[in-house]
Design a protein around this nucleic acid. Structure first.
Lengths: 124, 124
DNA sequence: CAATTATATTCGAATATACGTATATTATGT
DNA sequence: ACATAATATACGTATATTCGAATATAATTG
């Protein structure tokens, strides 16, 4: 469903020669956005944090306890997730509650969870 | 569909205290596998290579030409993708053809493509 | 306002990643 | 066997990432 459009676009690039055409530029821009997004997810602890937050919102302290990580470590990784707009925060007194920023992201994390955390049949 | 199981498991972890329980170990192991997989995808050029290979198998030279990258760069990124079992190769004379290693991976790349390369409505 | 709790930030060292130049390998044609 | 084409690897340097220790901020309580 998504491939045919790409296929045609890139065959055109091929004919345009090695200098960057507008289409290739566009594609590279998208690839950069996508890789930024994936980099934000590409860390053991950040993935675990996201999985926990997919269930429900949680405070930093809860996350520390569940994952047995040090406070600055958790806070740093959460900062990264905030920076890339994967999570949002809500303050209640001293406590800050984190949650997943969008349904899209929840869905995406769900896909990864299904791939790696269920059914012993096919790892990847 | 995938979240409830995770939820219960992790609430149990929480009660087990900060030392790593077998379940948490297991979860962390999965998170590591998943992050390895995502790291392999988390690079502008590698994503572009995977997109091109989702269409059809291609030689290293084709990939170089389309993306206007140097030969060692392409070869190095392909080596990384090979190492993480995202692509497979087939030799025909001097030429080596690369293709996507599995339908799962093709589907996953498709999801990313849909998120970042279609519809101006929602970026992420 | 001082003490405490919850969270965030800064900084530095260790480690990992990316990419270019040079060189190696593998197969083909003469 | 030699030259050439296609691809792969080694290696060095530049840059990015990670994580811990120390410190800072923000809100609450006495």
């Amino acid at each position: 469903m998504s491939q045919p459009a790409l296929a045609r676009t890139l065959e055109e690039e091929l004919r345009d020669g090695p200098e960057h055409s507008p289409q290739l530029e566009e594609l590279m821009k998208n690839a950069r956005s996508a890789s930024d997004f994936l980099k934000a997810l590409s860390h053991e602890n950040r993935l675990l944090l996201l999985c926990l937050l997919c269930e429900k919102e949680r405070s930093v302290g809860e996350l520390e306890n569940i994952l047995a990580l040090r406070q600055p470590t958790v806070s740093q990784q959460l900062a990264r997730l905030r920076y890339d707009d994967l999570v949002t925060t809500r303050r209640d007194g001293k406590t800050i509650y984190y949650s997943i920023a969008s349904e899209d992201i929840k869905r995406f994390v769900g896909v990864i969870y299904d791939m790696f955390c269920t059914s012993r049949k096919d790892k990847k």
